[in-house]
Design a protein around this nucleic acid. Structure first.
Lengths: 333, 333
DNA sequence: TTGTACGCGTTATCAA
DNA sequence: TTGATAACGCGTACAA
């Protein structure tokens, strides 16, 4: 691979001049520029990004940490972010934290050791204190799906409460009154918020809250299975089910079929997230759309603005989810 | 951030010695090592990976190119590869080629300009010639899901023909004789091979081949929709449908429901790939498992062996798919 | 077992 | 508008 030095020799100019035409960091006479460009072309020169990084103290890489690489949930997010950065010649380094504190820490350290210019974090196990420490250490990062006080200017969030509210409200408007709820793990903030939204909707419609009709799931498919079994074991009648995510909704739907229930006439189900398989279920799942793509886009914008000093207008900190009506909900009277 | 130089000063040894304890590249007296390690700890030293790369001419990064980041198909693959490499302190840079020749080329160039030590490629648009040229240029890469002569030692493949064969054979064994087939785009090698497998199974069971019962789809959900509509428009009766991937199978199943058919009693469906939503369909999809995880693992092994000289036993070049029986197929007599 | 000195390919700071 | 030349932080022959 040709180096900048060989280019300079072939073009008959100095090393510095070649660097200038590459980076447009200072004016270069038109004739010289052409000579240099010709030389670069002839040698098939491509700048060595590692050397550039060392000299400029910028790696042009952005670290991304998400809970899972495997699931359907983060694919769109990653895709969007990757695109955004590639267009400007930067690349992303992706790691998975698996919702484990140790692993999340390790991953962050790994990314930092890679000299990432910035980190985009979707962490859930690591403490607020740790994150504050990270910020104090001068690490540039944005937080997705999390709100840490004092770090609010680097948080990009979904209004989970609104989402939970919309889900339950939809059912209420369809005439349902006995609405069961399958939450996520209550130690997760988003699970709590979605649940609060559910309660608020009930309250607004004057429907008394019944704690029997709540089941704490695990955000996995089996959570939905267990929840439905549990609810059926009660002798409380219920006509609708809100699940705090689509995986659980899917588990509930499958179980309902297995129990011989007809959907949606005997049971309406609403999910949350609108993951890519939501319309593969039968009936197709009505759910709350989580605009992950937009959130990823915004995270990228944050980095572009705050780390690479690009002129970005405004950063939006909180996104509103929307109800997506498909076939799994049914009007009753 | 502390440098190796500061560590050496604090420990009262030379720069080279510090480097030795970091890389274990030469014996160091126990006492010295301890001094150095203490100094590193005190300064919170972490090696600068960029400088390491420049000096060693190794970036410790591996580029991965897949058609899509967004879909469910590659998530497991990426996840597996990322894991594999992180364990040994290397990281992956991921790009998407979108099955477009121009984009695939660009992506490869991008990855190369990033000084990746090796590339793991899942490309479909770029020509064999281009790939051979890449190899001649000294670029280290493995090819997944593709077979290029002269490059056979760097190809890791699925036996697609066997997969197609297994799918159709399963239906034949259940007593089906009128079996429709929805292929992928025929310019794709895997689509052709799967189709050949289908034909072979028919032949083996002495079932005459009927070209009317074949539809060329696009590997998308709509392909399955159109296929089923087309087959129904014929007045050929058929009791089973093989789809060359799960997306199309899903489309077909949905359409079947919409047409009021009862599944699987009126129509058996087999998919291919076993993507993560395959068991979210109703009925749960019987399909052919594509061991993407294993293939990713093997690609990583290839890199470890051929680029990082790690002692890896044997590299397997072709993987056998397996039938996964769920609820979408039905025995008839 | 340890130290010296040079090289890796750029960027950036001076002068000219 | 251009050219020397010093960083950047580390690996590694070669010497000791």
């Amino acid at each position: 691979m040709a180096t900048i030095y060989e280019v300079s020799k072939l073009a008959g100019v100095s090393l510095a001049t070649v660097s200038r035409v590459i980076n447009k960091t200072a004016p270069v006479r038109e004739a010289t520029r052409e000579k240099v460009e010709a030389a670069m072309k002839e040698l098939g020169y491509r700048p060595n990004s590692v050397a550039q990084s060392l000299a400029s103290n910028r790696s042009n890489s952005i670290g991304i940490l998400v809970p899972e690489l495997g699931g359907p949930f983060y694919a769109e997010l990653l895709s969007r972010i990757e695109n955004e950065f590639r267009r400007v010649g930067k690349h992303v380094i992706i790691a998975a934290g698996h919702s484990d504190e140790e692993l999340e820490r390790e991953s962050i350290e790994f990314l930092r050791s890679r000299n990432c210019d910035a980190l985009i974090l979707h962490v859930e196990a690591v403490s607020d204190d740790y994150l504050r420490g990270l910020a104090d250490a001068g690490c540039a990062f944005v937080l997705m799906n999390r709100l840490v006080e004092q770090l609010a200017d680097r948080c990009i969030n979904l209004d989970n409460l609104l989402g939970g509210y919309l889900a339950t409200k939809h059912l209420l408007e369809l005439g349902h009154r006995a609405i069961a709820y399958v939450s996520g793990p209550m130690w997760k903030r988003d699970a709590q918020e979605r649940y609060q939204g559910h309660q608020r909707a009930l309250q607004e419609f004057g429907v008394p809250f019944d704690s029997n009709l709540v089941f704490e799931g695990d955000y996995q498919e089996t959570g939905g299975v267990k929840a439905l079994q549990y609810f059926r074991s009660l002798d409380k009648p219920f006509t609708a089910l809100v699940c705090a995510n689509d995986e659980m909704a899917s588990g509930a739907i499958t179980t309902a079929h297995d129990l011989g229930m007809d959907l949606p006439s005997q049971l309406s189900v609403v999910g949350f997230d609108n993951v890519n398989f939501a319309h593969y279920t039968y009936p197709k799942l009505t759910t709350i759309d989580y605009p992950l793509g937009e959130i990823g886009h915004m995270a990228a914008q944050w980095v572009l603005k705050n780390v690479y000093q690009q002129p970005i207008k405004d950063i939006r900190a909180v996104f509103a989810p929307q109800l997506v009506i498909r076939d799994s909900t049914y009007r009753i009277n």
